[in-house]
Design a protein around this nucleic acid. Structure first.
Lengths: 248, 248
DNA sequence: CCTTTCATTTGATCCTGATCAAAGTAATCG
DNA sequence: CGATTACTTTGATCAGGATCAAATGAAAGG
């Protein structure tokens, strides 16, 4: 069981992510009350599809627990993951009624949903909500562009290291870098999902994971447990600048 | 000289893209008047840098004529283009003071700029401006994710075909698909820039361009002129679904 | 507990695109 | 106009990762 599911029980929404990230971290006004009324939960089992590319998508949502992925597929089956949604991430596109890619529950998943229409109305009458959404979308765009660099120019080993670093940071709440000691987390993805994330095959992922293990960069424990003895060492393997992420 | 520069003389801003795309396609209120006062122009020569990654970026802007590119670079020089800005595209990130990637004038370039602070103030007092920006950012995010599929899973030939199709569509105003006849446009990118866009080397780009030529998919005229005798034929080479782009 | 299924590892071989090198073209400038 | 510089093509070789194949390991279910 991933640590994520411990963050927040779906019944207890006092700390619901939508409140903190998606909508309004700055106020407690009537908008929030309206949102509270509107919201509802949906659960999915690991592997279950949330929406298919091309489907109508009449809601927006925030991930409460678990992990969802956005993937694009070509006719012949080649697949590329284009988004990985962790708890507190936002899904859905105000103003767009059709999903442009598949959304899948990678692990057991709980989402906090809002029907799209009323959410959009709320948005237009509440300026800073649109601004908050814009901010989040810009973050996602930054992430997508980082990801493009990874896909286009990094070696297989660098790709793997980058993904592990991203997951480690997310799972330990960004303080992984600061912490000097070893950190560990549960890999939420299969080799195949990692391959779809990285633009590789699962065989290459497996080989490179073991290469990193052989070189002492990571330890692969039981049941997908990953131990990173030295985060800086892992960061060196990513090919990124050491000072990544001092954006204002 | 690219056809783009003919679209709009920078002095004549009655048709300034910022008006139509970036800010407000729905109104003519006082916001527009305020914007008109704020705006100013900047010109860059082909090859000139607009901002470096990590620089302060105190303005947002709309491309009036020419082409700008966003690129990310690794320490060892590997480069990946992560954005290609054509006329009417928006650059800049409300709320962020630092550029996360290099912005370069790929051709001679004219941008219509607004200082960031006053623009942001205008945004917060004018709800639908933030909404419009959100919409544009979502479009960019879609484009980025399409691009990720290209980088992660397409073959060199498919990558080239995809890029040519994108440029053809943009240059002919989306009606390329409908048009049954041959279409043509000027390639605004060198082989090296195409390579940076596609995650390839320039040699591979050159070879695949000539392969497409040999196979009659495109004709390479003088001075970077590209002729596409049959757009559907080109589209087949991209690996994309034939019905790409019926988003609501 | 055994069977079935799914995930991962490992091996052998192949192929696409990278790399290294050089020649050919086109644009620029004194 | 000739020389320099930038861009493009072409060739030869190499290597990283894909593909095909099979074995191993771990989880799930009757």
């Amino acid at each position: 069981m991933s640590v994520h599911s411990l963050k927040l029980a779906p019944q207890d929404c006092g700390d619901c992510p939508i409140r903190h990230r998606a909508v309004c971290s700055r106020c407690d006004g009537p908008e929030l009350a309206r949102l509270e009324e509107m919201k509802y939960y949906r659960s999915f089992q690991a592997g279950q599809n949330v929406v298919w590319s091309g489907d109508r998508m009449d809601f927006v949502a925030s991930v409460v627990s678990g992990i969802a992925s956005l993937t694009q597929t070509m006719e012949d089956g080649r697949r590329q993951m284009v988004g990985l949604l962790l708890p507190s991430d936002f899904v859905g596109r105000p103003g767009r009624g059709v999903a442009p890619y598949d959304v899948t529950a990678t692990t057991d998943l709980v989402m906090c949903c809002f029907r799209r229409k009323p959410f959009e109305e709320m948005m237009s009458s509440t300026p800073h909500v649109a601004q908050r959404l814009l901010e989040m979308t810009l973050d996602e765009l930054d992430a997508a562009r980082e990801w493009m660099l990874l896909l286009g120019r990094k070696t297989a080993r660098e790709k793997i290291a980058s993904l592990l670093a991203i997951l480690a940071r997310r799972d330990t709440g960004l303080k992984a870098k600061a912490a000097k000691g070893p950190i560990s987390f549960d890999l939420p993805l299969t080799r195949e999902e990692m391959a779809d994330y990285l633009g590789l095959t699962l065989e290459t992922v497996s080989r490179q994971m073991n290469a990193l293990k052989r070189d002492g960069v990571v330890e692969l424990g039981e049941k997908r447990r990953i131990v990173v003895p030295n985060f800086d060492r892992l960061a060196e393997e990513t090919g990124d600048d050491s000072d990544g992420g001092f954006l204002s």
